[in-house]
Computed example of a mutant assay.
Amino acid sequence: MRKLIDFDDETLDKLTQLGRDRMATTQELADEAFADLLKKHGVPIDLKDALRKSVKAAGPSSAASRNTAMRRAPSRPARKKAHAKRSAKRSI
């Protein structure tokens, strides 16, 4: 989608020079500026940012319980090791 933004000559010259100094296009400068503006006002920029924000809003208790539940593996009964004296008697 294409939108036009009107800058006065002085501002456009400064943006053009900044782009040259940073080796960036005016579009890249605009993308960075709008992303910073959205972040400042708490608007998620993309899906990943929106998901992070929703997890933070859910609270630390639900995230902690979810992480703990995911880490637990089904427990298997431990194998009993032969007692050292028993194995020694069997070898005789």
Rank of each mutant, 00 (worst) to 15 (best):
S61F: 07
T25K: 05
A58D: 08
A58R: 09
R79D: 15
A30P: 03
Q17Y: 02
L37M: 06
I5G: 07
L4Q: 14
G59P: 01
K14H: 10
R20M: 03
K81G: 04
H83C: 08
L4M: 11
I5M: 08
S75R: 13
S75C: 07
S62F: 10
Q27F: 00
A24R: 00
K89P: 04
E10S: 09
A33P: 03
K56Q: 15
R86A: 08
P74C: 00
R66D: 06
K89L: 12
K3F: 06
G19V: 04
S54K: 06
A57D: 13
L37E: 07
F7L: 12
A64T: 15
R52C: 11
L4T: 15
R72M: 02
D49C: 08
R52K: 14
A78P: 07
K3M: 09
M1W: 04
A35T: 13
K81D: 04
H41Q: 13
I5H: 12
D21T: 05
L4V: 15
D13T: 04
A88G: 00
A35V: 12
D13P: 00
H83R: 10
A88W: 01
T26Q: 12
G42Q: 07
E10G: 03
A64Q: 14
L47W: 12
I92L: 13
A58H: 11
E32K: 14
D21V: 04
K39M: 06
P44N: 10
L47A: 13
K80V: 04
A69F: 04
A33H: 05
S87M: 01
S91R: 03
F34I: 15
A64M: 12
R71G: 05
K80I: 05
A57F: 12
T68H: 12
A64N: 12
